[in-house]
Design a protein around this nucleic acid. Sequence first.
RNA 1: GGAGAGGUCGCAUAGUGGUCUAGUGCGCCGCACUCGAAAUGCGGUGAGGCGCAAGUCUCCGAGGGUUCGAAUCCCUCCCUCUCCGCCA
Length: 425
Amino acid sequence: MLDRELIRTQPEAVKAGIARKRLDTSIVDEFSRVDTEYRKVRTENDEARAESNRFSKSIGQLMAQGKREEAEEAKAKSKALKDAATDGEERERELEAALRRIELEMPNLPHESVPDGKTEDENVVVRTWGEQPVFSEAPQAHWDIAERLSLLDLPRGAKISGSGFAVYTGAGARLQRALFTFMIDHQTLRNGYREIYPPYLVNRASLVGTGNLPKFEDDLYKADEDLYLIPTAEVPLTNLYRDEILDASDLTIKLAGYSGCFRKEAGAAGKDTRGLLRIHQFDKVELVKFSLPENSYEELESLTADAEGVLQALGLHYRVIEICTGDIGAKGSKQYDVEVWSPGVGRYLEISSCSNFEAYQSRRANIRFRRAQGDKPEHVHILNGSGLATPRLFSAILESFQQPDGSVLLPEALRPYVGFERLGG
RNA sequence: GGAGAGGUCGCAUAGUGGUCUAGUGCGCCGCACUCGAAAUGCGGUGAGGCGCAAGUCUCCGAGGGUUCGAAUCCCUCCCUCUCCGCCA
C-alpha cells in the first residue's frame, strides 16, 4: 500500500513510478475517482451522525428534567435523521471497501536508484564472487549425481505426492538437514538475527499483510476456510508484529526463520521441471528486517551481504544482480537477486531474492514505530531475503564439488554439521 | 470435541441501556516544591478518518441485530483460562 496523501497530492509522480515498472497506471485515476467520492460521502455522513448524536444526547437530559414531551419530539427527529442516514452509510461502506481493494492492488513504487528496464534481460550484474570451477570432464547435473549416489528419490516423491515433490534419502536427507541448521547458525550466531520457528499455516490477514493476497491466490495451497500453507517464512515472520507499534529503540529488528515453503507454481508448469530446480515444497531460511525508514537502504545492502555470506562460507561461486524496474514485481522498491553458479545445469540460478519494501508491507500489515513518547506512529520499513533456499544450495553443492571419481567433497564449513566429508566414493 | 469462566485506553481494574466526550490506581510526560533526588501536589497521557481551522466521526476481541441512544441487551464467530474427553 502507498500513502494515500501521496497519491492525492502527487498522482503524476505515482503514475510515473508505476509506468517505470511497466504496470497499468489507470489504477491511480480509479483511486482518485473513488477517493473523492468516498470523502464526500464520508463528510456528509459524519455531519448527519453528529446531528443525530446531538438529538440523542438531549433526550437523556430532557428525560432527567422530566420534560417528557420535548424528549419525545427529539426522539422523533433523531429517528428521522437516522433513517435518512442509513442509505448514506451503506454507500460509505461500499466506497470504503472499493477504496481498500484499489489500495491493495496498487503496486509499490520503484526506488529512484533502480535501473530502468522492460524485462529481466535488462537486469544488471553488480558483482560476482569466486570463479566458475574448472572440470576435466563435463560436470554432471545434480539430478544425475543424486540418483547415482542415492541422495534423492524423485520417482517415489511423485508417487506419494505428485510431480514436483522431492524425497531426500540417506546421506541426501542428512545433507539437507545439515544445510538449514548450518544456515540458521550462520545467520543467528554470526550475523545477529533472532531465531524464529514459525507456524506453516497462516490466516488470510497475514497473507494480505505481506502482499501475497489478494493478487497471488493461485500460487497458494489452501488448507482450510481461513488457513493457507506458507509460500515462505516471510509471511509469518513479517506478520509477527502486525497491528503493533514498535519502539524505535528496538529497531532494526532482525529475524531469521527456517521453514518449509509450499508453492503451486501455477504459472510455471512445464518450466524447470528437472531435479530440484522448481519444486512445490522446499526448505528455506528467511531473513526479515524491520528498519527505520532512513536506514532501510543501508539495511538492504547488509541483508544481501548476509545472504551472500552463506555462499562465501561454502565456497560457492555466485553473482548478484540488481533487478530492473520492469522485472521487480509489484511489491518491491528495490531488489537484488543472488544467483549461484550451477555448473551441471550450466546456469546461474536464483538462490536468494533480497528486497526493500519500504512501507508497502507495513501499511498493509499496520506495523508502526514511535520515535519518542508522544510522537505520532510512523510505518517501519520492512525488508526480506532468503538466507538461503536449500534445493538450489543442495544442487549447487553437488554440482560444484563433484570429483573425478564421482564423489562429492563437501565444503569444510559443512562437515561438522553433516558428520562426514564426502558423499559417495 | 464437550462444560464453564472471561476478553474494557501500556499494565491492573470499575462500569449491566442515557453528563461514559469510558472512571480509578500504576506506569509514563510536563510543571511546582528541592542544592539534587525521593516523597508530595497540580496538569497531561490511545489509534484512525475527514477538515485550512474550529471541530467532528469511528474504534471497549471481530461482525451483525434491537433501540432515538449499546462497553452494557440479543445472535454468530475468534481468542484466552479451568475442567473433561481424544491424541503426537
